[in-house]
Simulated assay, not measured.
Amino acid sequence: MQKQILIREAKDYFNITLGLMLYTFGFTVFLLPYKIVTGGIAGIGAIIFYVTTFPVQYTFFIINAVLIVAALKILGWRFLMKTIYATFALTFLLEVAQDIVVRPDGSFYKLLGEGNDFMSLVIGCILTGTALAIVFLNNGSTGGTDIVAAVVNKYHNISLGKVLILVDLCIIGSCLFIDTFGPVEIRCQKVVFGLCTMFIECSMLDYVMNWQRQSVQFFIFSKKYQEIANAIATTTDHTITILDGHGWYTGKETKVLCLLAKKSESVTIFRLIKVIDPNAFVSQSSVIGVYGEGFDQIKVKVPKNMKKKTLKGTDTDNKGS
């Protein structure tokens, strides 16, 4: 058991590192050279860098340190240890990457050339949005506004992307008040570009996370239902419900296995079924959401008056019975 936990943790850290490397590549190669303002702490760091030339990585580190201390009690050590690791790792990666993309005269290399700001924005945000999703899916965070999003998502059924949009609006909108960016029309352009980065990045974040978390429902009809149930339960650790069925045409009694699983587990389940009973009849369908029993938590708020009425009604029914 301890070995499995260590392997799982090592896998998380490995995937988080890959996500951070992808984020660093997208941010420093496609966004920073074109002075594109993004959301999050990286966006704050970029704005400060454009105005004062204060290194992005140091702003990122200082703000994250404050937020980590503030969120320690709410999110716990396990989540924040990975956030602390990500903060140090991303600070280091940003510093190394900026040294690579800066010319000897202090200007940045522009991979797509001059005048391709928007195309660079699209590519960069697709990469950074995907990178953030990889980090979140492995129980980590790049810190900053991700910590704020994780705190909100823990107690409310609001997607991470939506929370980040609300926070990023404030950061991007601040460009309107910074004279360093130039005339008002240029500042408005920066805000429009920033809104585009926010939309693309958050859309990619939600898309990748929802795709990875998508669940499916199986109905399995087979005479070897017991063997199939044992194999699936042993391999995937999922519980299975056995339903009583009755064939209309044959008039015979039959057993139906009902199973909810992650979409990524579908191939494994189909292989198990095929090995045991190649002639089994299987129905697979996508489900919008699965909550409890190893899946997502129910995060809706229950009003106090509703809770009291429900419990009172339950007590009345119990007394009546």
Rank of each mutant, 00 (worst) to 15 (best):
M198W: 04
Y13Q: 08
M119G: 02
L260P: 01
E201N: 12
Y13S: 09
E201D: 03
L205I: 07
E114D: 10
I41L: 15
C170D: 07
V275L: 06
K301C: 11
G320A: 15
F118I: 04
V290T: 10
V96N: 05
Q98D: 05
T128I: 01
V101W: 01
F27M: 03
L94H: 08
V192R: 12
T130R: 08
A231K: 04
I269E: 01
A86D: 11
C170E: 03
R187V: 09
T17G: 12
K223V: 08
I288V: 14
G161Q: 06
I7Q: 11
I16S: 05
A150S: 12
R187C: 03
Y34T: 01
T53G: 10
T235I: 04
I165R: 05
K154Q: 10
L80D: 11
I242P: 00
Y34S: 00
L132T: 01
R8A: 14
Q226N: 05
T91M: 15
N116G: 08
N116R: 13
I48P: 10
Q4L: 15
M81F: 11
T28C: 05
F30M: 09
P303F: 01
S174H: 09
V56E: 10
T235S: 12
T38Q: 01
P303I: 06
A229Q: 00
A70M: 15
G26P: 09
F199L: 06
Y155G: 01
L272T: 04
R271I: 04
N15G: 01
L112N: 04
V56L: 09
P278Y: 12
A97I: 02
D317N: 14
S264M: 13
T130W: 03
G320W: 00
E9R: 13
E9K: 07
F118P: 03
L137G: 07
F92S: 08
A149C: 02
M119D: 01
N230V: 03
F136V: 04
F281C: 08
V69M: 13
C170W: 13
V135G: 00
I44G: 11
L18K: 13
I84K: 00
I100T: 06
D105S: 02
K190W: 02
V151Q: 05
L112H: 05
S285W: 01
D277H: 00
I134E: 09
A89M: 13
V300Y: 14
Q98K: 13
F92H: 04
D146A: 07
I62W: 13
I220E: 10
G320P: 07
E114T: 02
T59L: 11
V96Y: 10
Y50C: 10
G45V: 02
V208R: 10
D317G: 12
A233C: 13
D146N: 07
M198I: 08
W211T: 11
G247V: 06
C188F: 14
L164N: 10
I62E: 14
I47Y: 08
Y50P: 10
A261V: 11
D237S: 15
D277S: 07
F219Y: 05
V216C: 10
K162Y: 01
G113D: 04
V69T: 11
S141F: 06
K190E: 01
F14A: 15
T24G: 07
A42I: 12
